[in-house]
């Protein structure tokens, strides 16, 4: 697992049934492009988050394929529908095989 990787998500704590809500996510990750060289002139191997997914109660909301052109500390903002109370499930996939996950529950008012 890469060092210091930490996901952050911003989801409203509650919503009304069927409401569209804004979700923001950010994960601390260096997104090493594979095009830089170290002090000795050796290429630093690529090491990025290559996929991000968000689902609500098992229903897919967004599935993103990331390339090295995504900035350090990848950030996404998108809109999701909350049909009922439940849980958002966020997953980030690292080149090194690590998977970072976080969940957020939403109440329906």
């Amino acid at each position: 697992m890469a060092k210091g990787v930490k996901p952050r998500v911003k989801v409203p704590k509650s919503a009304s049934a069927g409401e569209a809500i804004t979700i923001k996510t950010l994960i601390s990750h260096k997104m090493e492009s594979g095009r830089r060289k170290d002090g000795d002139g050796n290429t630093i191997p690529r090491s990025i988050i290559n996929r991000f997914t968000c689902a609500f109660n098992g229903t897919s909301i967004l599935d993103v394929t990331l390339e090295p052109a995504i900035s350090t500390n990848p950030y996404f903002q998108f809109e999701a529908v909350v049909p009922e109370a439940g849980e958002f499930h966020f997953t980030w996939y690292d080149d090194d095989g690590s998977v970072y996950e976080t969940k957020k529950a939403v109440k329906v008012a």
Partner: peptide, 12 residues
Amino acid sequence: DFDNPSFVFVEQ
């Protein structure tokens, strides 16, 4: 404060 990437480091 969410858009501000500094807060990843504040949380750490």
